[in-house]
Design a protein around this nucleic acid. Structure first.
Length: 292
DNA sequence: GGGCAGGTCTAAG
DNA sequence: CTTAGACCTGCC
């Protein structure tokens, strides 16, 4: 268990005895809708809600929520049903991971909305984070639901039904460049496949899920792995991007082989928690700006 | 100004 | 099944 007790406070909840969670390690790599304040606290729009996070020592406060909502939504979203101490113990048998974990020991996997993950990570392909954030915000402002918090307006990420009738021109106005047609095709396909389709996919085996997701326009092996890891609870998924490729070659002396082979080898090495290993390694590699 | 960014698509061997 | 090239856009 990665926390001790949860109590309701004024306009929120307080979780004490929090282990294995640092906001800086978790919020900004997997999601594009968290904003960091200067004091380290954060505000984010997720699961059709706005919440604020503030952590001091091992006490985490979540504002604009309550106990019931925490149990129904945020418990799963922040992956508090998983025991990271145990996972880290297993992964630490690997010397490289032991170091990487020391460096980013507060990583958790966020269990996000599937549709949001698909669209935002299609946009992420060969793109920069500020541009991705801008596009995701634009989509939300245009097609999401307006919600108010502290006299300010926020916009949730839309549902499939909110976007199913958009034209290609609508997508081109988002400033996503060549990815506009990917989004257009994917939303149409998801809409045609019906509401249950994404739940159906998420229940498939690793390999079948990975293959099925790549039928979506703009979804290749890397984005498919991100979707599986960040929204479908598939912790064995191992997204291979340029940084992870560098890391596997640099730290594990892997040959400079194809991305798919690096993926296969890594999943073989790290097993059911390969995705968590990927997160530690990604953070480690990127923060240290390793070069080969 | 050319190069590049959390890859994917397409065409061709 | 594997692999080069092109690709929007904005910032260095």
């Amino acid at each position: 268990m990665d926390y001790r007790e949860i109590i309701e406070i004024d306009n929120g909840i307080e979780i004490t005895g929090v282990n294995n969670f640092e906001m800086d390690h978790t919020l900004y790599g997997q999601c594009f809708r968290w904003k960091r304040n200067d004091d380290g606290s954060a505000i984010g729009i997720a699961m059709e809600r706005v919440i604020e996070l503030d952590k001091k020592e091992d006490t985490l406060r979540i504002y604009n929520t309550n106990l019931e909502e925490f149990n129904n939504i945020w418990l799963k979203y922040f992956d508090f049903t998983r025991d990271y101490t145990e996972i880290k113990k297993v992964l630490s048998k690997d010397a490289v991971l032991k170091e990487a974990i020391k460096f980013a020991d507060g990583i958790r996997i966020l269990n996000q909305d599937k549709f949001e993950l698909i669209l935002t990570f299609i946009i992420s392909a060969n793109n920069r984070i500020p541009m991705i954030e801008r596009a995701v915000e634009k989509i939300s402002n245009l097609y999401g639901k307006e919600i108010e918090y502290n006299n300010k307006k926020y916009y949730t990420f839309p549902k499939i039904k909110d976007m199913k009738d958009l034209s290609l021109e609508d997508y081109e106005k988002l400033g996503v460049g060549f990815r506009a047609k990917y989004l257009y095709n994917t939303v149409r396909m998801l809409s045609e496949n019906g509401e249950e389709y994404l739940d159906y996919i998420s229940n498939l085996s690793m390999d079948n899920c990975h293959k099925e997701l790549q039928k979506l326009s703009g979804v290749g092996p890397k984005v498919a792995d991100c979707i599986m890891l960040f929204s479908m609870g598939k912790t064995a998924a191992f997204p291979v991007d340029v940084w992870i490729k560098k890391a596997m070659i640099f730290f594990y002396n892997m040959e400079d082989m194809s991305l798919n082979k690096i993926r296969e080898e890594s999943i073989k090495m790290f097993g059911e928690n390969a995705g968590l290993a990927q997160q530690y390694l990604f953070y480690y590699a990127r923060e240290n700006n390793i070069n080969i």
